[in-house]
Amino acid sequence: MVVLATKLYVEGEARERALDSLRSLVGNEIGDLDVAFEIGVRHDDFPSVTIEGDDATVARNVLREEFGEIVPDLEPGETYVGTLESWDEGGFVLDAGQGDGVRIPTDELGLGPGSATQIRERYGLVQHVPLRFVYGADDESEPSRLADAEQDRLYEWTRGDGRLNVNSATRAEVRATLNRAGHAQDYVTVERLGLLEQSVICPEDTDPPGLLASVGEYLPAELRCVVP
């Protein structure tokens, strides 16, 4: 079994659509392997994938690479994926399946000046977005920090033409909303950040705040802009 580091936190019909989307994503990743799989959702909203078959080990490794994995125990110095649970002036708290969460102090985010709240706004980080981090020492003498690769990815966001980040919706739902609202020409693609967290990549002549104002009423979600 692999517990994927992406959350399924919506309810009702939206939850069923999200589960269908996850089945398709998992199928796309491991469908060519000799395996059968079944998806469940844990009490903490992390989905689990039970895999059986001759290629089960390979399939588990493919899903770990694609989504990140929630593991029972964290080892100091190792890199994991957690979802952005909360934030305050002093840092981020990531949910990595450890109950109270993993706290990353502002100084360990490595994303420039400002409080953690200001950094979240600058990089358009919506709640529940998966983020890679390096776990600190058990005795807290060395705090957890955002992984170098994650810092690089987020810095790249601010060097592009702008983004609109969204949670609580699948990639297909975001694309359909943009097209239905008349914005088919106002985005390059929708990048999947997590199962229910997406990043709308804008072309040079699209203003992310303007796009947010236009489609916000159609998406019952948190929306955050990245403006270069």
Rank of each mutant, 00 (worst) to 15 (best):
A14W: 05
Y123S: 08
D88G: 15
C225M: 01
D54I: 07
E108K: 13
N61K: 15
H183S: 06
Q185K: 12
I201W: 03
T170D: 08
L212D: 02
E197W: 01
E52C: 00
E197F: 03
L109P: 06
L196C: 01
G162N: 06
V10W: 07
V71W: 13
S115E: 07
D139R: 06
N165F: 03
T106N: 00
A184N: 06
G112K: 03
E121T: 12
V49P: 04
E150I: 09
G110C: 07
G27E: 09
L125D: 03
I39H: 07
D207G: 03
S144R: 08
S141K: 04
T6E: 08
E78V: 14
Y9F: 15
L63W: 06
D100F: 10
N28P: 02
T170P: 04
G101I: 09
V26Y: 10
A59T: 11
E29G: 10
E52Y: 02
R120L: 10
R60V: 04
Q118N: 15
E121S: 13
R180Y: 01
A137D: 00
D44P: 09
V93Q: 04
G40K: 09
P208S: 09
V226Y: 09
A18I: 08
R60W: 00
V3D: 07
P143M: 01
S115C: 01
E222N: 02
G77T: 03
P130K: 15
I119F: 00
G114W: 03
I51C: 05
T50C: 05
L74W: 07
V62W: 03
L146Y: 01
E85G: 08
D32N: 13
S141E: 10
A5P: 13
L74I: 12
I70N: 13
R224N: 03
G210H: 09
I119W: 01
N165C: 07
L154W: 01
E222A: 05
R103A: 12
L25V: 02
L33N: 00
A147G: 12
E89C: 05
V49T: 10
E52G: 09
E142I: 11
A18M: 01
R103S: 14
T189K: 03
R17K: 15
N28T: 00
L25H: 14
D88A: 08
L146V: 11
A5C: 13
Y218Q: 14
L19H: 08
Y9G: 04
R145M: 10
G110P: 05
S21L: 04
R171C: 03
Q151I: 12
P209N: 05
V35A: 02
T106V: 15
L94R: 11
L193K: 04
D161V: 05
L195I: 15
H183K: 04
W157S: 07
G99A: 08
I119D: 00
G136Q: 01
Y218E: 11
V41A: 00
F92P: 11
C202N: 06
T189S: 07
L8D: 00
G124M: 05
A116C: 06
Q98M: 10
L109S: 01
D152A: 14
E13Y: 05
I70G: 05
E75G: 02
D107Q: 10
D148M: 04
V129R: 07
T106P: 01
V71S: 12
V200N: 05
G112E: 00
Q185N: 11
Q185D: 14
V215C: 04
R15N: 01
G194H: 00
